[in-house]
Simulated scan of single mutants.
Amino acid sequence: MFAVYAESFSPDDPLSALRLGERPDPEPAAGWAVVTVRAASLNHHDVWSLRGVGLREEQLPMILGCDAAGYDEDGNEVVVHAVVSSPDWVGDETLDPKRSLLSERHQGTLAEKVAVPRRNLVPKPKSLSFEEAACLPTAWLTAYRMLFTQAGLKPGDSVLVQGAGGGVATALIALGRAAGLRVFATSRDSAKRERALELGAHETFEPGERLPARVDAVMETVGRATWSHSVKSLRPGGTVVIAGTTSGANPDNAELTRIFFQQMRVQGSTMGTRRELDQLVNFLDITGVRPVIHDTMPLERARDGFAAMIAGELFGKIVFTR
């Protein structure tokens, strides 16, 4: 089968480690199913894999990709949940110490077929296209968990989304607005601020700019560059949910005094559960909210998609189709 995979690592030039070509068809273990992939989306995780983060050389070659939508062996339309927990794990899959993602221990989704545990399959409603559904299992699920599970936000609450433009940030804005939140967003790029307004943000700001009022929660995926502003923008007793550190993990000022004195909560968040993915899919089915897709291209053009992500030229998701 045709697939996109890592054959080596290159921390400085990840595209040089990318390969496109034939790989063996998956051979599912007991309790696993083979999904015929119709669409798969790209994540920063895939670029980090090419850099050698989260993979060891003995695991190569590794088919990349966490997200997919397609048909199961019975012809049902499904969305693939990317978190693979231990066979005997019960409860929140993201808390399993032995959990992994597709394309870490198990071959990924950027291929004609992928093998996954049967329990990882979520029904895809007819209202969602395969391309839209393929955007959900990583970026959109991460956003859903951040807003509603970890921050516990409800209609009428306010939220700041740092770094509008990426897959998680655009999902946070769209989901937040659809759920009745007051949404603020930041970006260094004026065009991305304008797109964020079109997507549903009530107001946008340059990084570090003072907000009209302190918010109930801040969604933080940028890290060092925005951390101090995130804490300063939060009301007493509010919550910062952190799910990424794209600008670095070590802020110049951790704002510890402000955090303890104003009794703020710092909450980590990673991916989401199968149940949350099912809830997210139903949320989109009911509300009509749809993922922002930057570009759709055949899997054979995967190198172009990776190049765009590495260059930071995206607003929304890159989706590959078969």
Rank of each mutant, 00 (worst) to 15 (best):
R118M: 13
S100A: 09
V34F: 09
I63A: 02
L121R: 06
D46F: 03
L110M: 12
K98Q: 15
A68Q: 00
G75Y: 13
L101M: 11
L60F: 09
Q107F: 07
L60M: 03
Y71H: 14
K126L: 12
H44Y: 15
R56I: 10
V116G: 07
A111R: 04
G65V: 02
V78K: 00
S103N: 07
A68R: 01
T94Y: 07
R119L: 13
D67C: 01
S49P: 05
S85W: 05
N76P: 11
N120S: 09
W48H: 15
P97F: 13
D74F: 13
L136M: 04
P61F: 09
L60G: 12
A40R: 08
G52P: 10
G75L: 08
Q107I: 03
S86R: 12
A111Y: 00
P61D: 14
S103V: 11
G108Q: 05
K113H: 09
V34Q: 02
L128K: 01
N43T: 09
L121N: 14
T109Q: 00
A68T: 01
G75T: 12
A134P: 00
E77R: 09
P97I: 01
E73P: 10
P123A: 09
S85A: 15
H81F: 13
W48D: 15
G54S: 10
W89E: 06
L42Y: 03
D72P: 02
L102P: 04
